[in-house]
Design a protein around this nucleic acid. Sequence first.
DNA 1: ACCTAGCGTGAAAGCGCTCTCTCGGAAGGG
DNA 2: CCCTTCCGAGAGAGCGCTTTCACGCTAGGT
Lengths: 376, 376
Amino acid sequence: PVPVVLGGTALWFLGFLVVLLLDRSNSTLLWTPEDECPLVLRSGTQQRHRVMTRRPGIDEVARLAGVSKSTVSRVLNGAPHVSTRAREAVRRAVIQLDYTPNHAARSLAGHRANAIALVVSEPSGRVLADPFFAGVMRGVHAELAGHRTQLVLMMAQPGDVGSYLTGGHVDGALVVSLHGHDPLLTLLHDNGLPVVAGGRPLAGGPVPYVDSDNFTGAIEATQHLISLGCQRIATIAGPADMAVGLDRLSGWRRAMSGRRTDLVAYGDFTPEGGASAMTSLLTREPSLDAVFVAADIMALGALQVLHAQGRSVPGDVAVVGFDDSVPAVPPLTTVKQDVERFGRMLTWRLLAEIEGEEGLPPSVLLPTSLVVRTSA
Amino acid sequence: PVPVVLGGTALWFLGFLVVLLLDRSNSTLLWTPEDECPLVLRSGTQQRHRVMTRRPGIDEVARLAGVSKSTVSRVLNGAPHVSTRAREAVRRAVIQLDYTPNHAARSLAGHRANAIALVVSEPSGRVLADPFFAGVMRGVHAELAGHRTQLVLMMAQPGDVGSYLTGGHVDGALVVSLHGHDPLLTLLHDNGLPVVAGGRPLAGGPVPYVDSDNFTGAIEATQHLISLGCQRIATIAGPADMAVGLDRLSGWRRAMSGRRTDLVAYGDFTPEGGASAMTSLLTREPSLDAVFVAADIMALGALQVLHAQGRSVPGDVAVVGFDDSVPAVPPLTTVKQDVERFGRMLTWRLLAEIEGEEGLPPSVLLPTSLVVRTSA
DNA sequence: ACCTAGCGTGAAAGCGCTCTCTCGGAAGGG
DNA sequence: CCCTTCCGAGAGAGCGCTTTCACGCTAGGT
């Protein structure tokens, strides 16, 4: 079959060729940047009509095991009052039939969604790109393994999320990257949905949260700079509407007590934000010799600016970051936190809350530690 | 209430204090690094027994609107054969009752999960930390908005995922970061589950995929290096068991035809991998003057090594990356791809497949473009 | 020996929807 | 004017589970 090539530059053509060469399927497609929808050159015959091999149901398991549906259900859910004989029979039947319980039916009958939401309370999805978040997600996942609970990912565009979450689609929610006095937390909490915040919420009343000890970490970082003999120590703080931003700034202030504390610039946890903060700091105080950046991701931007202005790190300016999330040139001295543990803790707490466990810790603060590398 | 402090250093105590100061709740907890489980100091009285305000069902909506359940269902699903009068009545009732359809019931009755899985086929979860993946996820999300379809995130530990996915919990799957000849794709496909791969799969037969034009991108990048007059151009390739690794390497080879093409080292798409690849390259050919790195994230590691060895970039060694995903010092010349579009395309394709649309493009190749910055 | 516990089990009633069937009535063709 | 369509609408049968509830049966107490 000779494919019809519709326009395209020489490079595209090469790309096209490589597909032909590398792809085993005998059909392909050329993508043109102008169109939002792909052009079909030759469609494969993929109309394999979903053979739906009718999955076995609980009654089939029951029949095979020689017990009733009820008993199967009990075994599946680890309920008591089941004889070992029955339990084993069911187990065998389940394996033999490769039975998987139907999630929807189970949710419907059991009045629980068997799912929790991970809500990224930021329309831009900035957090997603943050290595910190990736680690948290891994932790969440790790903790979820074993609990037959799905992880539903949501990005909050204000409004739509609230009703979805309180609509009974999930049993609980993990809310991260909460800004300012976002009413989301209160909304969920008032609706009786178990919620745990990742990072101390500025508003939200008695909602439990898990957070890193940002305050102490910032103190350590700043003290390190001081112990190095730095004289003019600036800081690039996080957003003023997030606890993580405020706490790290507080730590810096505390450690700097007795010194000059006006060299503060705010960033938004992006490299660009870090870069412009650094620029403004340098303009205000060209002779600064150290900077505590409230996030490695911002430090990246700061380092670019420093480099562009020909200032050496740590020679001219010592830099300490926070998060231990990204490799940089030179390698950053930074405050490390165990992000995966953060995620696990978050999830553990939420699941416990959902189970209705008593005497749960209202909130958890995870320790941080300074990692000294090259940049300071 | 006077909290009991169980051990802890002065710093912890400060952290503890800041919680007391900043937190409105009158209870808190001290976290000790030794324990895997938090110590409860004073538990809040959060036993607000989930007031389950009995959500309205479809029959209540029907009653209020003065129609039957069937009609409400038709309106909700945009089915034809509904009078405008009835449609409006239902719409009003829905709003008045703040009705949200029950996801589980709908799935059960409708024989569809109303959910798709995003499968990260990598136990380590390495991809999660990749900015590339974050962008894809944003795209997936954007495309999903409007379709009442949930996004379920899964990290594949071989074995467990397959049965889950084919177990009818999701209507389709997006599989990314597939290594080598992973049987997952074939497994899913053979079970009739709609699947779309993110990145060309090495195995998997006729499974549709979306990929960036890695081959062409790599050619452009390498040609840029050549046009700069570089003489000894090396490459740090991606894993040899992933198409994205192979294709970028092929592109480099193609552009290098007629030149020396033995300066190849492999990395694993991590900064550490990039660093050790760079080290080995430098050992083998101390006089190399350019390197095409198959991923920005690896370039970061390479830059660290170059810096540590006192080689300037781009003065001594020109560096070109791929992905345009991370800021570096100096800013990387790199091959940019529209990751969000990648995610949207992936999702669009999967949803179309699920809907059973005809004449779908078997695969899609998205264009890339060179972004020239400082590093080359 | 009788009564009470309480364990192991099965029958059956839903959970809140979708979807097939059915049916009256309006529109259109002969 | 009658018969065929077809549209709008309702009744009702499940979807595959969980969960009372009721039942027989074995132990232990008196």
